[in-house]
């Protein structure tokens, strides 16, 4: 089989672009509650013994979850990309999905 029969795998290209997009979004997801958390840590915004404190804690643990969720999302795409050949035979075009 000569090299001319191998072409770039469009799915690989799409997943690579998807990975790039996900990586661009990574910080936006991971830091989505950072400003809320910062404000709740500021004594001048909302304080109180129970409701406000509970809300602050709810924000904090969700804020702490977000970086992991963002990374998982990227990992999911990276896994799909790594299991996808970069090139395929021309005659396989149209069958580029997971085998």
């Amino acid at each position: 089989m000569c090299d001319e029969d191998m072409v770039t795998n469009p799915r690989y290209t799409a997943l690579a672009a998807l990975l790039e997009l996900a990586e661009e979004k990574r910080d936006s997801i991971a830091e989505a509650l950072d400003e809320v958390h910062r404000l709740m840590s500021d004594r001048g915004v909302w304080t109180g013994p129970t409701t406000a404190t509970q809300f602050g804690e709810d924000v904090e643990y969700r804020k702490n979850d977000l970086p992991g969720l963002a990374d998982n999302l990227i990992e999911e795409i990276r896994d799909a990309l790594s299991s996808t050949p970069e090139e395929v035979r021309r005659d396989e075009l149209g069958h580029t999905g997971p085998l």
């Binding site: 001048g44 909302w46 129970t50 406000a52």
Partner: peptide
């Protein structure tokens, strides 16, 4: 329980 709040905040 109470909340101490600023409108701006």
């Amino acid at each position: 329980d109470y909340s101490s709040i600023s409108v701006d905040g």
